[in-house]
Each structure stands twice: as structure tokens, then as C-alpha cells.
Write a protein that binds this DNA or RNA. Structure first.
Length: 578
RNA sequence: CGGGGCGUAGCUCAGCCCGGUAGAGCGCGGCGUUCGGGACGCCGAGGUCGCAGGUUCAAAUCCUGUCGCCCCGACCA
């Protein structure tokens, strides 16, 4: 491919709307162009990288035994009503608007395909003899994200690989667990080949349902999630999911007596701790939730945050919601902001850290008053205690190793779904006793655009992108330094043709531009290998081969360039694995 | 959905406060010089000033509304 016959609109300046490195660099390198919030065109260079990511994903899914198909973006809303996800998805589910109850009104844009694949399984998978089976597609997803951001890291339309597996059993040969492990391994191989520094973590399965899941995270400041990782590397989890090693008792003695203090208008932890000159960590935060109309009181230390998923698990319910002010007032007999555990008549779950507190400050259940000298066990009964908070700096992993926090972006997610969708859509098979059973399912997703953007986040320097060899738009750029010099043009064209024939992705920069100009563009776009053909080198009988990541330069005889480059490309694909 | 910022040429921005014929740099076209780290000179093309109302003799500029985009937060499989 020749530059002058291709389409690469690079930018010298940083577009004002781009805040994160991947967005800035992909715009400047002429790889993407924004159409609207969360929707982007992939220009030829960007599309080449995306297609390379896609090829890796496809190869590894095929290798894992999954079978490719293609499902539509238009779904009947009835199917989504059946699984209860019209409500669960809310505004994320994009709907068409027709007149009255016509087909448009009854159509949604697919944000994921459990409904569609389960309908296929229901129709065709009739016998246990057809199981297990894994099906996947690489297809465009639509989601009504409230706030798209960071270029193509979070968009409303994106390419996703979604795979679904069907099983007769969870365990044993052909069971869900076996395929889950196989998919997990395939994911590791995909991210590793794509050269992105991934970390698999335990995750919360959230609204999609199911009983086990892992997320594949890539650390980056542009991310929107946090993961925690133990210093010894043995434990990694999504912040929401992370289990916390119990805090040990500091063991101070002096037990004060409970006394009431006037705290007019001071309803937040910060206000009260400032006013009383105590640490937030010395206060008991009392948060009132609602479960089926009944109040549930959660107690955490003032410097901790309640984790609703953990709380729900501890309470043995599927979901807790923040209580309405009316319920809080009725329960505490005070305005919102003055609740406390002493004398309250409701189910109370205390965080483990609260049970160790002494002489704490908390709400008095009386407007404008707090109480001090509160001691759990003495002043209120602790019937239930559990880990119901998010980990914070200083906490330790379950194995006792200190936890470190990392900002990250999710690029893949694997779930054990169980029978959530097969139950609601009545997808059954006949087992070996001829009895109908619900299909047991797993689902496995990867965001292809995110892999690409995350690779840029992980691999760039002050001059531009430093692509992994496997997903660079071109592996090699030839900079022909002076197109007026016949020897340069001839040699450049010859090298280009030889490499193309050898199966190398090569771009010949044949623009009539000065050397510095070409070098800057080459570095910005991040071709892993740059070949410089100039009259100086030719006079010495050599061609310069420069490695983008290391900056090392090799002076090679023209006849040996193709072999040298071929070897280096293969080596890089191996050595750049993550 | 709450808070903040911004919409003027393909890109980066000035002009707006204080109303009076729309500017610069980059990029783009032509000619010439230049050619191993984003060259230079001359000439030139390119804009409904996001949109709609209003005020005014006159609106990019003032007022009202609206749409869009970015950032923080909420939400998020």
C-alpha cells in the first residue's frame, strides 16, 4: 500500500474534546472520527487495527471450540419482556419509536444477545446429545449509555464478541464449569496475544444474573472501575466484589458513658467530625435501607462506605434499596441525618469493623443531636455482623496481604449464567431419562474497540502510539526520504513489493514531503518498524531499520531487509505477549 | 439526571465584556526555492459565527429558548 493512494488524515494539534491519551492519539493518527457522543467512524487505519483484534478473537474462539454465527441488532421487545430485562435495563435498552403499537414501537436495539440466542437454543437444542455447544458472534451492540466518554473506551455503539454456551450439567465432562474454564483460558490467550496488560478479577455478576463471573481488566488512568490486588499477587478482585480480611482489635480500654451532644443542623459525617473534633473513623455511619417495605439498618465506620451488593448478600436478599425519607423519619423519629443504632427498632447489620469500635460517635435518633461514648454490644446489641463495605486503602486481602488499588477498564467478562434465561424463555432439553430440563448457560463477552483503545492507553509515548506488533495497522512503514532521487524511489518500491509478497503489512510513505515530516507521522501512528531509504544510506549500501518501541537502529544490506524484518516481526509477536 | 465548561474555516483558537462590512496560525490549491527530524516566499480557495425567536437603524457580540459536545458526579451487564 502506498501512502499517497491511501487515506490517513493525521492532525498536528490535539483536538480540544479529547481528554485521554487513546482518544487524542487515535484522533491525531487519523484512525477515528467522532460522529456524536459515543459514536465513532473507524477510518481505514483504525479499521485495520480493529480487524486485527477481531481476527485474534475469532481465532481463539474457534480454537476453544466455539462456533460462529450472526444475530441481528433488531430484537422484538416481547423477548426482553419475557426475561424481565426491559425494566432491568432501563434507559440502556434503546428502543425505536413508531406510531402507536406498530412494529417499530415493539422493536429494540440489542445491547446483548441472551434473549436471541436462547430462543435459537429453545428451537433447536432438544436433546442432551446435542450438548454441550458454544456459539458466538462478533457484532455491533447498542446501549443507551448515560454518559459516553474517553473516546472509544465507552461508547453507545461498539463491536462485541459475545459467546454463549449450553450444557446439560454444571459439573463434569461437558458441563458449564469445563467450558467456563476453557473460555477463561481463551480470554487470557486473546489479551496476551493482543499485547494488553490484563488482570483477571473476581466480579459481581450484576443485573445480567448468574452465580459466578470474572472480569478482565486493563489498568489505565482513563478507566472507570477500580480493582484491588494484593501485594503478593495472589488476590485480585473488582473493588465492589473484593473480600476484606477482618480488622483486628486495637484493644484500647477506657469505656466512656453515653452522652448526648447538641449538633444543630449537622447531619453529615464531615460536619459532625469537624464540630466534635473527632476522626470520621471514630463515628458509626447509620444507613437505612429498605427491603420489601421493611427497614434494614446498615452500620459502617464513618470513613467506610456501604457496599449494597455485600449488604444484600449478608441480609440474604436479592436487592436492597435506599430508604425513602418518610420511612427514615418514621423509624428514627428524627430528620434524616441523625440516625443511630441505639434504641432503634429494626434489623441491624453491622460491618465487622464497627464491632471493634469503642467510644464511638453516632446519631441520637433525635433531630439536631448526636451521642458520644457509644460501644457496640454494651449500648446496642450486635445480632448480625458481616463484611458489608468497600475496601479502602490500608485493608488487606483475605490472605492477609495488603491491598493496592488500581484504576482500570473492563475489556472482557465471563459469566456462569445457570438457568436464568432458559427458565424465563422456557428453553428445555430432554435429558438421558427423557425428562425435560432447563438448559444450563454460560456467556462470555469481549469489547473489541476497548481492547484497541486500551492497547493505546498502555502503549504510547510522547511521540505517539507504540502498537503491539499483532494489532498495529501496518507492521512496517517505508519512509522514502527523497522521491526525486531515482535510486531512492526504485529501492523503496522494490522493498515494498518484496515485503508485500512476503506477507508483511507494509505501507510505503511515498509523499513528496521532507524527512522530519514523515518521521513525525510514522511515530504518531506508531508503525512498529520504520524502514528508512535515503540517498545517504544507499551510498553506503545500507537500509536503516528502526524499532518504534526501543528506538534501536539496524543497518541492513538491501538484499537482507525482508528476511530481517520477517524474523523481527515473528519475534516481536512472541516477546510482546503479556 | 445534578454540577461545571464550550459551540466562530478541516484542526487549534482570537473577536463577545464595550453591537457597526468575520480574523490568525496550522492544514488545503497554484508557482518558485528547499529536502536525514513537523521548511520558506508570493498568490489563492474556504465560515448560514450550532439553531430558533426577541431587542435594535444595525447582532458572532445583548436577551430568551432550544439543540449539541466535553469534563466531574449519579447510573452502568
Amino acid at each position: 500500500m502506498k501512502w499517497t493512494q491511501y487515506f490517513i488524515p493525521t492532525l498536528k494539534e490535539i483536538p480540544a474534546d479529547a481528554a485521554v491519551p487513546s482518544h487524542q492519539l487515535m484522533l491525531r493518527a487519523g484512525m477515528i472520527r467522532q460522529v456524536g457522543a459515543g459514536s465513532y467512524s473507524y477510518l481505514p487505519l483504525g479499521y485495520r487495527s480493529l480487524r486485527k483484534v477481531e481476527a485474534i478473537v475469532r481465532e481463539e474462539m474457534n480454537r476453544a471450540g466455539a462456533i460462529e454465527l450472526l444475530m441481528p441488532a433488531l430484537h422484538p421487545i416481547e423477548w426482553w419482556e419475557k426475561t424481565g430485562r426491559v425494566e432491568a435495563m432501563g434507559d440502556v435498552l434503546l428502543r425505536l419509536h413508531g406510531s402507536g403499537d406498530d412494529w417499530r414501537t415493539r422493536t429494540v436495539l440489542g445491547p446483548t444477545h441472551e434473549e436471541v440466542i436462547t430462543e435459537i437454543a429453545k428451537a433447536y437444542i432438544i436433546s442432551y446429545k446435542q450438548l454441550p455447544i458454544s456459539l458466538y458472534q462478533i457484532q455491533t451492540k447498542f446501549r443507551g449509555e448515560a454518559r459516553p466518554k474517553s473516546g472509544v473506551l465507552r461508547t453507545r455503539e461498539f463491536l462485541m464478541k459475545d459467546a454463549y454456551s449450553f450444557h446439560a450439567a454444571k459439573e463434569g465432562p461437558g458441563g458449564l464449569d469445563e467450558t467456563y474454564d476453557k473460555m477463561y483460558a481463551a480470554y487470557c490467550e486473546i489479551f496476551s496475544r493482543a499485547g494488553v496488560p490484563y488482570i483477571p478479577v473476581e466480579a459481581d455478576s450484576g443485573a445480567i444474573g448468574g452465580d459466578a463471573s470474572h472480569e478482565f481488566m486493563i489498568p489505565t488512568d482513563a478507566g472507570e472501575d477500580y480493582l484491588v490486588q494484593s501485594e503478593d499477587g495472589q488476590y485480585a478482585a473488582n473493588l465492589e466484589r473484593a473480600e476484606i480480611h477482618p480488622i483486628e482489635n486495637a484493644g484500647s480500654e477506657a469505656l466512656a458513658t453515653v452522652s448526648e451532644v447538641h449538633t444543630p443542623g449537622l447531619s453529615t459525617i464531615d460536619d459532625v467530625s469537624n464540630f466534635l473534633k473527632c476522626q470520621p473513623g471514630g463515628m458509626i455511619k447509620t444507613i437505612i435501607f429498605e427491603v420489601d417495605g421493611e427497614p434494614l439498618v446498615a452500620l459502617v465506620r464513618g470513613d467506610h462506605e456501604v457496599n449494597e451488593a455485600k449488604l444484600a448478600r449478608a441480609a440474604g436478599v436479592t436487592r436492597v434499596t435506599a430508604a425513602e425519607p418518610d420511612l427514615i423519619k418514621k423509624l428514627t423519629g428524627a430528620e434524616v441525618g441523625f440516625a443511630g443504632p441505639v434504641g432503634i427498632d429494626a434489623r441491624i447489620i453491622a460491618d465487622q469493623a464497627v464491632t471493634l469500635m469503642q467510644d464511638a460517635v453516632t446519631g441520637a435518633n433525635k433531630t439536631d443531636y448526636h451521642i458520644t461514648g457509644v460501644n457496640p454490644g454494651r449500648d446496642f446489641e450486635v445480632k448480625e455482623s458481616a463484611d458489608i463495605r468497600n475496601a479502602v486503602e490500608g485493608d488487606r486481602a483475605p490472605n492477609g496481604s495488603p491491598l493496592a488499588f488500581k484504576k482500570c477498564i473492563e475489556v472482557g467478562h465471563v459469566f456462569k449464567l445457570g438457568t436464568k434465561y432458559s427458565d424465563s424463555m422456557e428453553a428445555k432439553f430432554l435429558d438421558n431419562n427423557g425428562k425435560p430440563q432447563s438448559l444450563i448457560m454460560g456467556c462470555y463477552g469481549i469489547g473489541l474497540n476497548r481492547i484497541m483503545a486500551a492497547a493505546v492507553e498502555a502503549h504510547h509515548d510522547e511521540n505517539g502510539i507504540t502498537w503491539p506488533m499483532t494489532i498495529a495497522p501496518f507492521e512496517v512503514v517505508i519512509c522514502a526520504l527523497d522521491m526525486r532521487v531515482d535510486e531512492v524511489t526504485t529501492m523503496s518500491n522494490q522493498l515494498h513489493d518484496e515485503m508485500a509478497t512476503a506477507g508483511i503489512d507494509v505501507l510505503l510513505d511515498d509523499r513528496d514531503a521532507r524527512p522530519g515530516f514523515k518521521f513525525k507521522d510514522a511515530e504518531l501512528i506508531g508503525f512498529p518498524i520504520r524502514i528508512t531509504v535515503g540517498k545517504r544510506g544507499l551510498a553506503d549500501g545500507i537500509i536503516e531499520v528502526l524499532m518504534r518501541r526501543t528506538g534501536e537502529v539496524h543497518k541492513i544490506a538491501p538484499g537482507e531487509v525482508v528476511a530481517f524484518v520477517t524474523k523481527h516481526i515473528e519475534e516481536a509477536k512472541e516477546s510482546e505477549r503479556t
